[in-house]
């Protein structure tokens, strides 16, 4: 009996830590799957395309990690991205006349994009905290507002960036330094910064505390409302950064820009192991989650083995399995 118990304990010590490495495992499985499906999957061009694509959702999801860790939720990010993209295009087209065709116009557009993102996040945060309304409802509301505003500005159509300015702006999406495309670089920088802020600073610790138990946070002299509002502001800034690299891709924004990005961002966060009800978050998990989501779409595009109509099924199944991998208790129940 004693012998048996002892050998069991030793065996358990070598158990794989699914909770921590689950997302990586799922990612690895996907990479293997992708390679099997089509060798073109691992080609440099495809990998670069995929990482670049994942940058939008990834950057937004880094912001969402903060919001969700602190116990909130932001459903407005997709339409906020469309809204910011729309405003940015209008502003740059307008500035052409005064500032001319050049980087000055683009930089002004970028700066304003960050300002709008900041303000939009601030609104979400303040209405949630000061107005004491559920974040779900507040951001559901702003989601509709931003979406309809962009439709209004575009007059139901598509807002397109002026051709001349687009030629200058285009490299921000398409060019690379040392073989790393700018969007991937931006994603990496945002992720590293997010990691440091969430795990190494007081603000990050306060996010965890508020997400686990708001009362405890309050009784620990944390300015709960201030921290929560700041998470939405961070989210807004992340959305604006994502928009800055999105606009040069196709140079346009319309009512269909960024549709369902909010759900993709939330899915990336949860796949990465952050707890939806708050209190625990991890940035690197989110990064893996965002890459995985893009990868699934990519792999489906690389094969004709699966009916196009079943894409959603495959996507849904993989997401659930990925989360199961890390949540499931794979040890023998005692």
């Amino acid at each position: 009996m004693t012998e048996l118990v002892r050998s069991m304990t030793t065996a358990m010590r070598f158990d794989f830590d699914f909770k921590t490495y689950g997302p990586f495992l799922a990612l690895l499985a996907l990479i293997i799957l992708g390679t099997l499906v089509n060798p073109a999957f691992v080609s440099e061009a495809n990998m670069t395309n995929m990482l670049t694509r994942s940058a939008f959702i990834g950057i937004i999801a880094v912001g969402a990690t903060f919001v969700i860790t602190a116990g909130g939720i932001d459903l407005s990010v997709g339409s906020m991205a469309a809204f910011i993209a729309g405003i940015m295009i209008i502003i740059m087209n307008t500035l052409l006349g005064t500032l001319g065709v050049g980087w000055l116009t683009i930089l002004t557009g970028m700066a304003l994009s960050v300002v709008i993102g900041f303000a939009a996040g601030m609104i979400n945060g303040l209405v949630t905290t000061r107005g004491k309304i559920e974040a779900f409802i507040v951001t559901l509301g702003t989601m509709g507002i931003y979406r309809s505003l962009v439709t209004y500005f575009a007059d139901g159509g598509t807002l397109s960036l002026d051709f001349s300015i687009r030629e200058i702006y285009r490299p921000i999406y398409y060019d690379a330094v040392l073989g790393i495309p700018y969007p991937v670089l931006a994603f990496a920088l945002v992720a590293v910064a997010g990691y440091v802020v969430l795990n190494k600073t007081r603000f990050g610790r306060h996010c965890f505390a508020i997400g686990s138990n708001e009362h405890v946070a309050k009784y620990s002299a944390i300015h709960v409302n201030r921290v929560k509002t700041l998470t939405y502001v961070l989210q807004g800034i992340c959305v604006s950064i994502a928009t800055i690299i999105y606009v040069p891709r196709l140079g346009s924004a319309s009512a269909s820009t960024g549709v369902l990005w909010e759900l993709e961002a939330i899915a990336a966060v949860i796949i990465g192991g952050t707890v939806l009800k708050g209190g625990y978050g991890r940035i690197w998990g989110t990064v893996v989650g965002a890459i995985m989501l893009t990868m699934i779409g990519n792999i489906l595009n690389l094969t004709d083995a699966i009916s196009n109509y079943l894409n959603g099924t495959v996507q849904g199944a993989i997401i659930i399995v990925a989360v199961l991998l890390q949540r499931g208790n794979w040890r023998r129940k005692k």
Binding site: F208, A209, S212, N213, H215, V216, K218, Y219, S220, G279
Partner: peptide, 17 residues
Amino acid sequence: GCGLLMQMQLRPNLTLL
């Protein structure tokens, strides 16, 4: 309810205030 973060480790609990 108000004192400790039950699902967090001792270290962050100790220094939170």
